[in-house]
Each structure stands twice: as C-alpha cells, then as structure tokens.
C-alpha cells in the first residue's frame, strides 16, 4: 500500500501529472497577463478564455512533421529535448508542493537543484551546438555566456537564505521561516527574480533566442515534436523556478486556512505574474551589457545581502 501511495505521489498528485497541468496553466497565465499588460486579449478560443491554448499548441506541434536536418549531430540533437524535459521534472520533484517534498528531502538538496539548473544550460548549449546552424551556434554561445553572469548571484541569493535559516534542505527552509524571507531579504529576492528572468530566457534577458537578431537562437533548427518538448520544458522550468522562489522566499505552502498546496500554487502564480510584468517593461539587453551588468550590480548586491544576513542573524541572537 505504501508503495502505491508513493507511486501516486510521484506520478499523479503532486507529481508529474500535476506538474504538467501546472506547466500548461502557468504558460496560459503568463500569456494572458503579458497580453493584458500590452492591452491585448491573449489566447481566447481554446477552452474558456483560451485556458486550453497551451495544450492545443502542444498537440499541434506534436502532430507536425519531425525533421532532422542533414548536417546536425543526430544523437545529441534528437536526445536534447528529452533531457530538457526530464531535468526540470526531476528537479521539481524536490519542491515541497504540499508541505513535504514529492521525492525526498535531504540536507543539501538546494545545491542539487541549482546544479540541475546548471545542467539544463549545458543541454541548451550542446543542443544549439549540435544544430550546426550559425544562428544556433551564436545562440548557444550566448546561452553559456549569459549563464556565467546570472548563475553566481542566484546561488549567493539562495545561499544567504540558507545561511539565515541554517539549513540547505529546501523543505526545511520553506517550513522554517518566521516571516517570509521576502520581507527579511528583499535585496536577495530582487536579485533572485532578475536572475530567474535570465535563467528562463525571458525579456530583458531573452538574448540566447533573440528573435529579431538570431531568428530563434539555439532553437532555430528544432521543429515538430522536438520543439513541442522544448517548449514544454520551458513551461516546466517556469514551474520549477517559481516553485523555488516560493519555497525559498515566500515560505512555501505555509499560510492560514487553505491547505498548503493551494497556498503554494497561489504564491507561484504571484511569481509568474511578477515575471510577466518584468517581461513587459524592458527592451532586450545586449549580451555584453547583460554580463557586465550582472557582475557589476547583481553580484555585489547579492554579497551585500549575504553580509546583511549575517548581521541580522547575529543581531537577532543578541536580542
């Protein structure tokens, strides 16, 4: 019985099926909010208010012809979409969606999650490189360059929370916040959100797939089911990143009256809306501006947050 329960947790709720539904739902929320910020309607026809549009897009792409260009490295090119979906799925299983993690929780799983995000960037790079298209190559190079800029401030901003709470277990961090960390560490939260925007390749940091410059960046050669998987992977990463932000900065599923899973999802939606808002505010930066901006502003800010954390911790102990 216990095994069946675990399997249900992994595959149905709050596991893979629930995560997939969340991924499609978040894409819809993001598109709808982005449209409203731009005074448009957004998806409208598939389902009520177009809520099924992401699923319709996915099915449509799955039905398209699957083309593998002649000069690509077939093995990497064909397998990259599978890894791209698998990594965020696996990482999301550590999110404490309903108060406890789906898979398991151990000391140091935050480090594991951040490493998995790194791995995703590597997948992006080799997928773009294997495409052997000039636009893909430039996009892949930009992805790895951008990764060098945003990953460090992101790690430090997460680390300052871990230092404050005194644990590197995501579940422990999310459940043991006296007040949500966004209030205690606002600078860290801002740094995390900006880095998240870069991690998800969204405006102003959609440099690796800058449409008007390098067509679709590292995605240029992908089409049909492979593109469907890659886009699904992007939605999953949106779920994962907003989940991570929720668990670390918004005290996870803790909240009055409603069950933890509802709180968790609501807080994730808040993060998604924030991300759409940022997306509609800026023009795309150039890669050199982005890298120098991250090193010049984000990293000092995140280190400042780490130092402040230390002070707050010591100060609280004195009190």
């Amino acid at each position: 019985m216990d095994n069946v329960f675990t399997l249900i947790r992994i595959f149905i709720f709050p596991g893979l099926l629930f995560l997939s539904i969340l991924a499609f739902l978040f894409e819809w929320i993001d598109r709808k909010a982005y449209a409203r910020f731009q005074n448009r309607i957004g998806p409208l026809y598939a389902g009520p208010s177009g809520i099924l549009q992401p699923i319709a897009d996915f099915i449509k792409l799955m039905g398209k012809e699957d083309i593998t260009p002649r000069y690509v490295d077939t093995l990497i090119f064909n397998n990259a979409p599978i890894f791209a979906v698998a990594i965020p799925f696996f990482a999301s299983l550590y999110l404490p969606l309903d108060g406890s993690p789906i898979l398991s929780s151990f000391e140091g799983d935050v480090v594991l999650l951040l490493t998995l995000m790194t791995l995703y960037t590597i997948i992006v790079f080799i997928a773009g490189w294997a495409s052997t298209n000039r636009f893909s190559t430039v996009g892949a190079a930009r992805a790895i360059l951008q990764f060098l800029a945003y990953e460090i401030p992101m790690f430090i901003s997460v680390a300052s929370v871990a230092v404050y709470v005194g644990s590197t277990s995501l579940t422990y961090i999310s459940m043991n916040q006296p007040v949500p960390m966004i209030l205690l560490q606002p600078i860290g939260f801002i740094v995390f959100i900006i880095s998240m925007q870069a991690e998800l390749e969204r405006i102003p940091f959609d440099i690796p797939e800058a449409e008007s410059e390098i067509v679709a960046g590292w995605l240029t050669e992908y089409c049909g089911p492979k593109l469907a998987f890659l886009r699904f992977a992007e939605d999953l990463r949106l779920v994962f990143c907003s989940g991570l932000a929720t668990a670390i900065f918004l005290a996870g599923g803790s909240g009055p009256i409603l069950p933890p899973v509802v709180w968790f999802v609501l807080k994730m939606i808040f993060i998604v809306l924030l991300s759409s808002y940022i997306r509609s505010l800026f023009a795309r930066f150039r890669i050199d501006q982005m890298v120098s901006g991250c090193w010049r502003y984000l990293i000092p800010l995140s280190i400042l947050q780490l130092i402040l954390t230390r002070f707050v911790e010591v100060g609280l102990r004195w009190l």
Binding site: Q38, I203, P204, S280, L281, F282, A283, R284
Partner: peptide, 8 residues
C-alpha cells in the same frame, strides 16, 4: 529591441 509592449 525586443520591447514588445512599446510596439503594441
């Protein structure tokens, strides 16, 4: 410039 909001 990727500033779709201004465009709209």
């Amino acid at each position: 410039l990727g500033f779709h909001t201004l465009f709209m």
